[in-house]
């Protein structure tokens, strides 16, 4: 079950949640707040979501991953609110009987999350300006 949270993401909790004796492989992806983008300096990011649709879309992505690969357990979580440098904004953990499926599913899930899930980030640049990020 995907989650949105206003609180710091506990990466160890994600790993613990997907570990199972059915799995021979566990992968963890973390997205973190990066300081520099094309030489511009970030101080913080603010994340906002259309929460019910974000959860529904994350649910659909998890279901798609399960159709494509043989997986054991999945955890998807996205942080909302004000995040400072280095904090974890998103976490995807996948366990599977074999590593190929775990890696492929993890890559698919974070790529699709970034492409489809209705969440937006606003840059707080070091010059004091703010700017919504959109592709």
């Amino acid at each position: 079950m995907p989650r949105l949270t206003e609180h710091p993401i506990d990466s160890q909790q994600l790993l613990n949640a997907v570990q199972t004796t059915q799995a021979g492989a566990v992968i963890l992806f973390l997205g973190t707040v990066r300081e520099f983008t094309n030489q511009r300096q970030t101080l913080a990011l603010d994340y906002e979501a259309f929460a019910p649709m974000a959860i529904a879309e994350m649910d659909r992505i998890e279901a798609e991953a399960r159709e494509k690969w043989i997986l054991a357990k999945i955890e998807t979580i996205h942080r909302l609110g004000h995040l400072t440098l280095g904090e974890i904004s998103v976490g995807v953990a996948v366990s599977a009987p074999h590593r190929d499926a775990a890696f492929a599913a993890g890559q698919y899930m974070i790529d699709e999350l970034k492409r489809r899930v209705p969440i937006w980030k606003k840059e707080n640049w070091s010059d004091g300006s703010q700017e919504w990020v959109h592709p």
């Binding site: 994340y47 996205h78 998103v90 970034k114 209705p118 969440i119 937006w120 980030k121 919504w132 990020v133």
Partner: peptide
């Protein structure tokens, strides 16, 4: 209905 700009999560 919801209306929003291109998404930028992650």
């Amino acid at each position: 209905v919801a209306c929003f700009p291109p998404v930028s999560g992650g």
